[in-house]
Computed example of a mutant assay.
Amino acid sequence: MKILDPATYLGSRTSYLQAHGLGVSITSYQPGTPLDTSFHAHVHPHLTLLLQGGTLEKRQRGQYERRAGETVFFHAGEGHQNSHTLLPSKNINLEFETRFMHTSGLDETSMAGALKNNPGAAFLPLRVHAELLAGDAATADSIAMLVLHALNPPPATRQAPPAWIRRAGELLRDRWNEPVGLEELAAAVDVHPVTLSRYFPRYFPGTLGQYLRKLRVARALTMIRTTTLSLTQIAYACGFCDQIHFTRTFREFTGLLPKTFRKM
């Protein structure tokens, strides 16, 4: 049986991001391209979401028809075979390296169980994909947060937020236009990065990247209404890499285009 190296899949890899022991890749399978239907396995456990197309998947315990929108978990070294693939086909793959498993306290059994028992975990690759599209300085840290919160969520509690949560919020609001990373933020509030990743989505609306983007859009609202700066100038002043990202993020949070808001 063929064992594929990390970040290697049978399709054509169109994008890849590696950070914090996680690997995120998008693979495509196009008409006219020979498909490898050999029995194979992967070095690391991973999740795969079928974004487009479908496939007939064979494993030791059975055969399954996989369709677009379905999320599947593969154990490290678990043999499987894909055939009768509907083309064009596209997958997003979320790979878990050994160091991520160790630092996060996760194991393959609990990860497979989370996918089965937590409905929200099935959307994890989609949320990861959304962070990839955002493509800002907080993308890698936000993906780590999403994974930990979905697969290893903190226990439910009615207690007041810990003091470090308040400090984290103050720091982010003070530095709204600066790239603040997970490691830096964790060190500033004196908690482990894994703890911050697990608890951040509980007390803040979304991931680190989503929260920073919300702060920047809020500042842009004021600048659009109170200055004569161009929208491009405002985009850069608010920490966006270009006006395309600014427009997309602004619309995501407000439902409006920046130019529409300026004319209101």
Rank of each mutant, 00 (worst) to 15 (best):
M1D: 10
D5G: 07
P6K: 01
T8F: 03
S15Y: 12
Y16K: 05
G23E: 04
S25M: 15
I26A: 10
Q30E: 14
G32K: 08
L35Y: 12
D36F: 01
F39Q: 10
A41P: 00
H42I: 05
L50V: 14
Q52W: 01
G54M: 01
T55E: 08
K58S: 10
R59V: 06
R59D: 01
Q60T: 02
Y64V: 11
T71G: 02
V72H: 13
H75V: 04
A76R: 12
N82G: 09
K90M: 01
K90G: 01
K90P: 00
K90N: 01
N91V: 09
L94N: 06
R99P: 02
M101W: 01
S110Q: 15
A112M: 11
N117Y: 14
P119W: 13
F123W: 07
L124E: 02
R127P: 04
R127F: 09
H129N: 12
H129K: 12
L132F: 08
L133S: 02
A134I: 03
A134S: 09
S142Y: 10
I143R: 10
A144V: 06
N152R: 15
P154A: 01
A156H: 09
A160W: 06
P161R: 14
P161C: 04
P161D: 05
I165F: 08
D174R: 14
D174N: 13
W176M: 07
W176H: 09
N177H: 14
E178A: 13
L185N: 05
A187T: 08
H192C: 03
S197A: 15
T207Q: 06
Y211P: 00
R213M: 02
R213T: 02
L215D: 12
V217D: 04
R219C: 07
R219L: 07
L221D: 11
T227H: 01
T228H: 08
D242H: 15
Q243W: 09
I244P: 03
T249E: 15
F250E: 10
G255Q: 07
L257H: 11
K259T: 06
K263A: 02
